[in-house]
Design a protein around this nucleic acid. Structure first.
Lengths: 197, 197
DNA sequence: GTCTATAGACGGATAGAC
DNA sequence: GTCTATCCGTCTATAGAC
């Protein structure tokens, strides 16, 4: 079974290290916040020294930006994929699917997404600015879902309100959800029961 | 108009300074987070030097604890006062009143409450531990309101779910509400429209 | 790619004068 | 009550060896 040198699938050493750093950074940002994430500790957990991180990332800001950017992309991708599998479902069902996948990704899969949500308010302006594009893109996905569901124009206040209310109810789960006691399905069902019509 | 020395109403110098410190600390915690709030900057804004803060507070932790504790008490007091003025309203109306006062206090009045909400996830364990009592007390207020509204026992999952959903939808407003564009009344009305029955 | 070593700045906290 | 002065720790980031 020969290697395929024209299309090398194995990761380079640098790429692997990069991903390790990103994963640990996401977990630490989620747990301790942006400014309490020390690059020394981070490097130790990855198995290198602090200075070595700068081979992979230009600065702490740049690292945080990438973590938080991935945080949006991971959830967005998960939601879009799930929706693509149910092209014929009703607008209501599509909205509920999005809610389910969003909170599920947030709570079980991705430190990146929760790091984004928790750290965004306190991250330097330069970082926040670099996140506007991805954030707006994901916001638009929700706006489209809710527009279709409410059958209202995108600019309607009802659409924005419902979007903020739903994402608030979902994202706030970071503050209380305990997997040993709570159940994602049950919570989403409760939320779905609140939807109009 | 003589002073009333037996019941002096004027604040002592220390009490005034304490309150100044608390107010500025609340604003800075809300804006920059707990660990990015430097005591040097804080002292400068209050008009003193960093060392002087320690006459009023034993440590940065102690200061943060008091800010965040007040954050709960302010909202709780506002909600309880508003409810006491409408003793004969329905369970539904009482719940909506609580929602209204909660978000209004959060967004316009109190840096203390928003500092609590934003900083809680990242504050040292010792601080979090000292906040459990006040937090549980306010949680209970909401549980009672929702129990009455849903007519279910306090332990029912529906009650917990609706409490988390509503507080999530309300507290999340910290992340998007823009007073020049958004309207508290309109948002609360949208939320009330989602309530069952 | 990762290391060592360190620069340079800033953090919380304390002691003692006033 | 507030100040000055300072201790001591930690932080991000950089330079250069390997």
């Amino acid at each position: 079974m020969p290697a395929t040198p024209t299309k090398p699938r194995q990761k380079t050493k640098a790429a692997t290290a990069r991903q390790d750093i990103l994963a640990v950074a996401a977990r630490k940002m989620r747990q301790t916040g942006y400014s309490d994430m020390s690059l020394r500790d981070l490097a130790t957990e990855v198995g290198m020294k602090a200075g070595s991180l700068y081979y992979h990332f230009a600065s702490k800001d740049a690292l945080a930006t990438e973590v938080m950017c991935l945080g949006v992309e991971v959830v967005q991708q998960a939601v879009q994929t799930a929706l693509a599998k149910q092209p014929d479902s009703t607008a209501r069902d599509r909205l509920i699917i999005a809610m389910h996948v969003h909170i599920e990704t947030l709570l079980s899969e991705s430190d990146f997404s929760s790091a984004h949500i928790r750290c965004y308010p306190f991250v330097p302006d330069t970082v926040r600015n670099e996140l506007t594009t991805v954030r707006k893109s994901y916001d638009k996905d929700w706006n489209d879902l809710i527009c279709a569901f409410l059958d209202k124009p995108a600019e309607a206040a009802e659409v924005r309100h419902l979007r903020h209310a739903l994402l608030g109810a979902l994202n706030w789960s970071l503050e209380w959800f305990d997997p040993s006691r709570d159940d994602i399905n049950a919570y989403v069902k409760s939320l779905a029961h609140l939807l109009p019509e």
